[in-house]
Computed example of a mutant assay.
Amino acid sequence: MYDSIRPGQVWLDSGGNRIHAHAGSILFEDGVFYWYGENKEHSKPGSGIWTWGIRCYSSTDLYNWDDRGLIIPPAVDDPGSPLHPSRLIDRPHIVRDPRTGTYVCWLKLMGADAQEATVLTAGSLLGPYTVVRTGLRPLGMSGGDFDLVVDPVDGKGYYYFERVHSELICADLTDDFTDVSGYYSTHFPRRHPPMVREAPAYFRRNGKHYLITSGTTGYFPNRSESAIADTYHGPFTVLGDPHPSDASGTSFRSQISSVFRHPARRDSYIALADRWAPHLSETESDQTEAFHRFFAAVNAGESPTPFSTPEVDTSLADYVWLPIRFEGERPVIEWHGEWRIEELG
């Protein structure tokens, strides 16, 4: 039994197995927390397995988690399915349609030429889910890392996504949350990685809209950036790195996947992050400058030596969950080797 959160340490479920809910999020329903994400238990170098379905866990205290199984299992026998374990499935996000009660899950799939989305629906959070849309290129764009948002008042949906290697997009969702409506806005334009913003994590506080994003350096961590706006579509004002005490500039060797607001504690937010490569030291993990040089050369029309990184064993990835405090409107995330929910506001 756990009675605290210990960032960067191996986290086991109630059955004694390593938790696999990577690039994940938390939903709270009827007094229960549900944590879902990428199941990386078989994702070892050379395995040909990127993600073995989407797994979910439940808890009543955010410390101890029961494995609820694969809510979206891999389509092992169908190489053409978007759910085949060899497909590059990333960053599941699930929202509930308040009008119908339907759960809608979006998945990002990486391809050789573009990144696309697959959309699934279910009558229950724990499934079963049915694929309703695949090969989706939102607004005709290559859509990368993303977050889904449902307005708590009017129930309108929004889709924040990285237009791959270019900028961040906020797109209105259709009424059933399974597609984009056509209206969108653009934010944080960058010439190339690693400056391009990816992994958008949205949250709302005191009527303001926040985004925390990552630079683009593969599984190697980099410096996060926070921004604030008065509306979903901005304009956003950049507030800087929310990890100011991290001298390594690697967001404590992690990448934030989502921000969870605790439903029972006033002004309490938790940044959920993955430490994709825990075996790397701070010096080894900070590859931002190497990425910058490589993509700058590509952008200049040169043919640089291909940038190579060692394969990362994501089956051993850990989690870095840390509380967020605020200096006025600016979010600040500090390191705690161990902390407790009861210490939140």
Rank of each mutant, 00 (worst) to 15 (best):
Y2W: 07
D3L: 06
S4K: 01
R6M: 01
R6H: 00
Q9S: 08
R18E: 02
H20K: 03
A21S: 05
H22E: 03
A23Q: 13
L27V: 14
G31P: 01
Y36N: 02
E38G: 01
E38P: 02
H42C: 02
K44L: 08
P45I: 04
I49K: 03
G53I: 05
G53N: 02
Y57D: 00
T60I: 06
D78K: 09
P82C: 09
L83F: 11
P85K: 03
R87E: 05
L88K: 13
P98T: 12
P98D: 15
G101S: 13
T102K: 14
T102R: 14
W106M: 07
K108G: 00
D113R: 13
A117I: 09
G123S: 13
S124F: 06
L126M: 09
Y129F: 12
V132D: 08
L136F: 15
P138Q: 14
G140I: 10
G143V: 12
D147L: 12
P152T: 13
Y159M: 10
Y160N: 05
F161G: 06
R163P: 01
V164S: 12
V164F: 14
V164C: 13
E167Y: 09
E167N: 14
L168N: 09
C170M: 08
D172F: 09
F177I: 05
F177H: 07
F177R: 00
V180M: 02
G182S: 06
H187D: 03
F188P: 00
R191N: 05
A199C: 05
P200W: 11
Y202C: 04
R204K: 10
R204E: 12
R204F: 03
G207F: 04
L211V: 05
T213C: 12
S214P: 02
T216F: 11
T217F: 03
N222S: 08
E225H: 04
H233I: 03
H243N: 10
S245L: 08
D246N: 10
G249F: 06
R253S: 10
S254C: 12
Q255P: 07
R261Q: 15
A264Y: 13
A264W: 07
R265Y: 13
R265W: 11
A271Q: 11
D274Y: 06
P278E: 09
S281T: 15
T283C: 03
D286H: 13
R293I: 05
N299Q: 14
S308A: 15
T309E: 12
T309F: 15
V312W: 08
A317Y: 04
Y319N: 03
W321N: 04
G328T: 12
R330P: 02
R330C: 14
E334S: 10
G337M: 06
W339K: 01
I341Q: 03
G345I: 02
